[in-house]
Design a binder for these strands. Structure first.
Lengths: 216, 216
DNA sequence: ACGTTAATTTACTCATCAGTATAGTAGTTA
DNA sequence: TAACTACTATACTGATGAGTAAATTAACGT
């Protein structure tokens, strides 16, 4: 390539070095988070040292500290990604129209799917005592937000008659428990696909254990 | 009291010093376990030092080591008590007669109740990476045993028609998730009694979310 | 070429906490 | 009273791991 072929003023690349760098940085941050989440899920938060994470990425610990303030921030970002995924699914479900039951079903399916993924699993396995004071508050805030969405969709369904009546708060906990628990037992390398698990779990919750149409 | 009233050979007390001591020892062991379980539940296992536990009992760390080999043994004993409670409830439910559905309902109620208590909460909050190699195996063993009981009662109900058909393994996970989750949100000082929560959660699982008698 | 900034390393510090060595005390037995 | 055992405390060791200081290299803009 001959430089005479270019005009004197160099064309600003849309992938200018500034943005490039920033993108690189984000990619690296994400890699750290994903790796960390997998370690946390496999060995637990406290049993995972940042040296483990660094080694898995073939770098050293201070490199990680170049991207994150501390271990707490890493854990929080992991659970944030998981929780925001669920929250977004909840918002999408609410906007989607249909009966309360339809919306709840969509929400639960999405929720269940996230529970089979790295950051979703991390959410269920993280208890707030593992986070620092600030993160703990935001963690609780996000969880409460999701619980409120869930509860409100359930209430809507009870109101429009598409769901049976009951204590919406308690029903929400029951649903959340069943869905969250997926993260504890599901193995991606097992026989069932995530979709099958999600579908089937939602179905069980919706229809209950007693035979359909059974008197009571 | 006059010693001449007693025959020359002293009567061996059933509360002889030997047995007395042993009983004292058990009481102290239990106090340690209960205190430890509460700390574990409130702050997490790793965030709880044995000095914390000792201080709460107004003794020092080496005293605890006089009753337990190590921290791992303490955690394991806590979860063992919780898990054996559930297992015993499962066995009792199986022996109790009635349809599969009746037995499942009894089992779930008991299970739910245990999930509102110290050692039961400890079970749900403990992940096996927190235990040593040996304890981890026994922990998993006990959990599997419970899962098997649960699954077999569900299968029995499906077979005798008192429960709707489905994938028993997956249904068992759904049930276990909803029940285990109680330990995460239930607060004894809240509005609902443990009995109410247990009853209501079981009811939701049994009847499902859709209105009864709904077509589909 | 030159200074600046991002990225990464080696080699540390520092705190925490599980677990122990050792010694002292109280009650029991002979 | 002497020896023994159970129990508890003081004062330590040792390992682990979070987080940092400082030096090094690579990349970029001017």
């Amino acid at each position: 390539m001959n430089s005479t072929m270019l005009s004197s003023t160099k064309i600003e690349s849309p992938w200018g070095s500034r943005a490039d760098r920033e993108a690189e940085r984000q990619i690296k941050r994400e890699a750290v988070l994903r790796t960390a989440a997998r370690f946390f899920n496999a060995q637990g938060f406290h049993a995972t040292s940042l040296e483990d994470v660094a080694a898995a990425l073939a770098v050293t610990k201070p490199t990680i500290y170049h991207y994150f303030r501390n271990k707490d921030e890493i854990l929080f970002e992991c659970v944030r990604l998981g929780l925001e995924g669920i929250r977004d699914a909840a918002c999408a479900a609410e906007d989607r129209g249909g009966t309360g039951r339809d919306r709840l079903e969509a929400l639960m399916r999405q929720y269940a799917m996230i529970m089979t993924q790295d950051f979703g699993i991390c959410v269920t396995r993280t208890s707030d005592d593992q986070l620092g004071e600030q993160s703990r508050l935001r963690f609780r805030e996000l969880k409460r937000e999701i619980h409120n969405h869930l509860q409100s969709v359930i209430k809507a369904g009870m109101a429009d008659g598409s769901l049976g009546n009951g204590n919406a708060r308690l029903v929400a906990f029951t649903v959340a428990g069943a869905l969250n628990w997926i993260a504890r037992w599901y193995r991606p390398d097992g026989e069932m696909s995530a979709e099958t698990v999600a579908h089937s779990t939602v179905d069980t919750l919706m229809r209950g254990l007693v035979p359909q149409g059974a008197s009571r």
